[in-house]
Simulated scan of single mutants.
Amino acid sequence: MPDLNSLIGFTLIAVGMAMTPGPNMVYLVSRSICQGPAAGLVSLGGVALGFVVYMLCAAFGITALVLAVPYAYDAVRFAGAVYLLWLAWQAVRPGGRSSFEVRSLPKDSPRKLFLMGLVTNLLNPKIAVMYLSLLPQFIDPANGSVLLQALVLGTIQIVFSVAINAMIALSAGSISTFLTARPGFATVQRWIMGTVLAGLAVRMATEARR
């Protein structure tokens, strides 16, 4: 089992990344606003399955392969940091858009909503960064089975991400209306998200390889 510090540290990062903008959040919010909260939750089901796929892939070999090649690990780590910095810039750049801005989308069937949620998550670089660059830093062979630690940490990420995204999907319409009426809050939201992303990028780039 991961030690307490690893559990707390990884949980905080998982929550922070779940609350920052990305393809998953944009897709879920757009679906919830255009087609209703139920559509957002169906889409979230696909996103959740994508999390499980990533977790199993990481637990059963991808993480071990990357860790076995130090230069490959560092390349992924720095690439992840650069990507997070790019996301931070996208959040705060002039003319940047909030994830809660209304986007017009056609109505889709539940099957398509689920599949699009799955595909969106599988192609989401932020989740790849989470499992390939961040998760290995919280795994210590001295604490027992590496596989078990990866599964425990991955489950924590899935539980918190699904819970946060479910609340966002259910309240997307109200949040969008609130931010539209108060553009100053939307600017503050984007700067907070950008700061969090930049902080994660710095942590990732400066973290020593375990």
Rank of each mutant, 00 (worst) to 15 (best):
C57Y: 14
V66N: 00
I156A: 12
D140T: 15
M1Y: 14
G95Y: 06
D108Q: 14
L132R: 07
F100M: 03
G184K: 04
I62P: 05
L179F: 10
D3N: 05
M19F: 09
S145P: 04
L65P: 00
T187L: 03
P183E: 06
D140I: 13
L113A: 13
F100L: 07
G199T: 06
A59L: 14
Y54N: 10
V42H: 12
G80K: 11
K107F: 11
A64Y: 00
A81E: 02
V15P: 01
L41V: 05
L135E: 07
Y71N: 09
V202F: 01
S145N: 08
S30R: 05
A88V: 02
L132N: 05
M116Q: 03
L56H: 03
T177M: 11
L49V: 10
V119A: 12
A58Q: 12
G36F: 13
R31A: 08
S171D: 07
S161A: 15
Y73V: 01
W191M: 05
I62C: 09
S30E: 01
V66G: 00
L147W: 15
V76F: 05
Y73L: 05
R111Y: 08
L28Q: 12
V69H: 01
W86N: 06
V92G: 03
V162K: 11
L134T: 06
A64W: 01
A72I: 03
M116F: 15
I8N: 13
D3F: 02
V66C: 01
N124Q: 03
R182Q: 13
L87F: 08
V69T: 01
F10T: 11
L115H: 07
G194V: 00
F178Q: 07
R97Y: 13
T187D: 04
N5C: 09
V102G: 02
A68T: 06
V47P: 11
Q35M: 12
T187E: 06
A186N: 01
Q157V: 11
M193D: 08
Q137T: 04
R111L: 13
L200Y: 06
L153W: 07
E101L: 14
I139K: 11
A198D: 09
M19V: 09
Y73G: 10
Q189S: 09
R77S: 05
G194P: 00
G173N: 14
A81G: 10
F100R: 05
F178T: 15
T195L: 03
Q149L: 12
V15F: 11
K107T: 10
I8W: 05
G117H: 04
G45W: 09
G61I: 09
V102W: 11
L12D: 10
L65W: 03
A128L: 13
I139G: 13
E207T: 02
A205D: 00
G173A: 11
G184F: 03
G45N: 12
S174I: 15
P2G: 11
I33D: 02
T63W: 02
A128W: 09
L84V: 10
W191T: 03
R111W: 13
F60V: 09
N24C: 09
G22S: 02
G80A: 07
A166I: 15
A169M: 15
G36I: 14
L200N: 09
M204E: 04
G46L: 10
S176N: 14
T63K: 00
P136S: 04
